[in-house]
Amino acid sequence: MTEYLKDALRKAASFCAYQERTQQEVRKRLDKWDIYGDDAEEIIAELITQGYLSEERFATAFAGGKFRIKGWGKRRITQELSQRGITGYNLNKALADIKPDDYRAKLTDLLEKKRRQIRDDNPLVVKQKLARYALSKGYEPALIWEVLGAEEE
């Protein structure tokens, strides 16, 4: 490995140490530094070997954070991870870490908060607005209607 590549590896390692990254993000950063092809792949392989880069760890951290902090549903998390090049095992593992009870509780909390913001007395309009909001957050339609139905009782 040339001195230039060793320097790029150090920079890439600090880039990955700052926060979890995907291989796609590291590849883009290496492109900015004019490192392409086999050299880029060699650096990425070394980052994985040294433990700086793990797509499973990234996916788990990303899904957990977006779920807990932003209240995103599994559909939205799946879409975002797919755009970042995360699929298959890593994606499924990240979603599996979200407990079903926590997931339903988060949806219920989101709908209750949103309900307090809606200034409409027509229950059908309110329900429609709540459902649309939950869909935009990435929750599954069946679960949304199940939770909205349970609210009425």
Rank of each mutant, 00 (worst) to 15 (best):
L30P: 02
L30Y: 03
D34P: 00
D34E: 04
D39C: 01
A40I: 07
A40V: 10
A40Q: 06
E42Q: 05
E42M: 02
A45G: 12
E46H: 06
E46I: 05
L47C: 04
T49E: 03
Q50T: 15
Q50H: 07
G51C: 10
G51V: 15
S54N: 13
S54C: 08
R57H: 11
F58A: 04
F58K: 04
A59S: 13
T60Q: 14
T60N: 11
T60C: 13
F62W: 10
F62E: 05
A63Y: 02
G65W: 01
G65Q: 06
F67S: 04
R68G: 07
K70P: 01
G71K: 05
K74F: 01
K74W: 00
K74D: 00
R75A: 10
R76L: 12
I77L: 06
E80R: 02
Q83A: 03
R84T: 09
R84I: 07
G88D: 11
G88V: 12
N90L: 01
L91F: 02
N92R: 09
K93H: 04
A94R: 03
L95Y: 09
L95H: 11
L95C: 12
A96I: 02
D97A: 14
I98S: 12
K99V: 00
K99I: 00
D101I: 05
R104F: 05
A105S: 15
A105N: 15
A105V: 00
L107I: 00
T108L: 13
L110M: 14
L111E: 06
R115Y: 12
I118W: 07
D120F: 02
D120Y: 01
D121Y: 09
D121T: 14
D121N: 15
N122Q: 11
P123H: 08
P123Y: 03
L124T: 07
L124Q: 13
V125I: 14
V126Y: 03
K127L: 01
K127F: 00
Q128K: 15
L130C: 05
L130K: 06
A131V: 01
R132S: 12
R132A: 15
A134V: 00
A134K: 11
A134F: 01
L135R: 15
L135M: 12
S136I: 07
E140S: 09
P141I: 04
A142I: 10
